[in-house]
Amino acid sequence: MIQLHKVVKRFRGETALAEINLEIGDGEMAFITGHSGAGKSTLLRLIAAIERPDFGQVFVNGRDITRLARAQIPYLRRRIGFVFQNHRLLFDRPVFDNVALPLRIGGAGRVEAGKRVRAALDKVGLLGKEALNPASLSAGQQQRVGIARAIVNRPLILLADEPTGNLDPELSREIMNLFSEFNRAGTTTLVASHDLALIGVLGHRVVTLHEGRLAGGAE
């Protein structure tokens, strides 16, 4: 489903990712770990074509996305659910509208959208908070709104960047279980996290990055 081939990404001459070769199979679930600044976020962002690599190729669902035309990128992103490290919610509208954004972009009908938004909020335990402004929610609740928004469109691939960064251990576990559940339903799932204790318990593949290089789990 996802293949990185000799991917190099530099920011102003500083190498963030060096010669990464990685393959994530269809329907697979994997964790990406590594110290802060190791390149976890950058790796995920390359897969959603938010960043473009300096060298190498990134294949998603069989297509080399580094060669996508600008106008094609939205279609790629609509197949990917992305949980951002810093949530990236819109605070000028209620939770419901935030979660409904991917559906509006994809052009879902209103009734259908309502159903799906409530289902997604139910999964992250926020049913009943649709009408609230995300600014009035706790950091952990905002994180979960971001997760609901990522899954509402039933994406082909789910990318999550530190989705449990602001959650207590119990809630973190629940959220990770939720990702596992999605994965069992067939969604290829890639989660960046440095919660090694939790990752160890879940028993999925673990890819380790160290200073922009693969240090384990690449096979």
Partner: peptide, 11 residues
């Protein structure tokens, strides 16, 4: 807002 919409796949 424009950036977030783009990230979510808006054209």
């Amino acid at each position: 807002e424009m950036e977030i919409l783009a990230l979510l796949g808006a054209g």
